[in-house]
Design a binder for these strands. Structure first.
Lengths: 207, 207
DNA sequence: TAGTTTGTGGTACAGCCGTGCTAGGACGCG
DNA sequence: CGCGTCCTAGCACGGCTGTACCACAAACTA
């Protein structure tokens, strides 16, 4: 064993092991021992990097949040129109297997948040960030002129936000009914409802 | 102790004790012993009515679902217009303390469902019922002529359903940000978006 | 080479978990 | 009265939990 281990790397592998256990067996199976076994080390070795279980969970939750932010932020900054907004939310919603896992982890943490003040705080932060995405998305639609002028922007942002959270929850709870196709469709349904019809791509628009 | 206890009543008090523990301390604190203590009896006495923990959870989940159905069904059958639909969903959403508790219980069960096949089955059933409510609600809006003709009914139902689930989840996760007022407002926002403007109650409508 | 730091494994402890077992009290029926 | 059924309480068991403690190997420092 080398004298100096790469702490960041070790912590990352442990967090990833926790993700795997969480996604596979649910939060109830996440214990110091199961995660350590998944990471291929002894519980004591793990405790060297995460002294308590709370540390482990808080760090894992923070990592999850930051990973999501890192993936979504560039898409959000690049978005200029409805298509860009759709790309943002397709990245946040469980539309492929990796996303599904990540959203399940997210929901498990959300459910766990009421347990510990630290997790509560992180969850609070996540909520603020997610709501901000919806507001910015609607601003983008406004700037591109695609938002229906009859729709109040605040209302659109609130609805979009709740709709997306609902889809995430439903996909985790009833995966058979809420597959990727249905998620994409529902998102499009909603955007259709708040956007004006596109400026005539092919063929005649409506009179 | 009387020779014959009222089984139904005993089971009901136990289920209610479980609800209280669940709402107060979260699912992690729900054990045979804590629920028995909350119900004021010994764990063994409780085990007479619910042989295993799984029985207890499955029964509690079924009771929760049926209680909700019993409360919502008459409202749904009585609903004839948008106001009626709003009443239905205000009864389903956590707009008062009792509803909040019930929705927290519901979410905890949803998260727990992946644990046991029985709970999975009950959750599946709940999902079907909830989706049915959204479909019927949109049919009512259609029948009353309030649904905007430009909005596809299927899309409206899907969005309404996901929106409501999202509000429920958000209210449980971020209670400070999603209070009853915000829930009512968001529901109204969405219905405004899919309904035609009402036939001029007071003052001039839009030109 | 000697010593200190850094990382790791094994073991142990108290506490909670679900559940099985056993004994006995309270009542209805004969 | 006495028997049998219904209900309740206590206890014990194996297993899992988080965490503390201790011994030890590897590598850098002097």
């Amino acid at each position: 064993m080398p004298r100096r281990a790469d702490h960041a790397a070790r912590r990352a592998t442990i967090v990833e092991a926790l993700w795997r256990v969480l996604a596979r067996h649910g939060i109830a199976e996440v214990s110091v021992r199961t995660v350590a076994a998944e990471a291929g080390m002894s519980p004591t070795a793990m405790r060297y990097y995460f002294p308590t279980r709370d540390d482990l969970l808080a760090t894992a939750m923070t990592h999850t949040l930051e990973r999501g932010t890192a993936r979504v932020r560039p898409l959000l900054e690049a978005a200029r129109d409805r298509a860009g907004v759709e790309r943002v939310y397709l990245e946040m919603l469980p539309t492929d297997e990796a996303q599904r896992t990540e959203q399940e982890v997210y929901l498990a943490f959300a459910g766990l948040a009421r347990t510990s003040p630290r997790l509560q705080e992180i969850s609070e932060d996540a909520g603020v960030r997610i709501r901000r995405v919806a507001r910015v998305a609607v601003e983008i639609l406004q700037a591109s002129g695609e938002l229906d002028p009859g729709v109040p922007p605040g209302a659109a942002a609130r609805c979009l936000d709740s709709l997306v959270q609902g889809l995430t929850f439903q996909s985790a709870t009833w995966p058979a009914a809420f597959d990727a196709e249905r998620i994409r469709r529902t998102l499009r349904d909603f955007l259709d409802g708040i956007c004006v019809s596109p400026p005539d791509r092919s063929g005649p628009g409506r009179p």
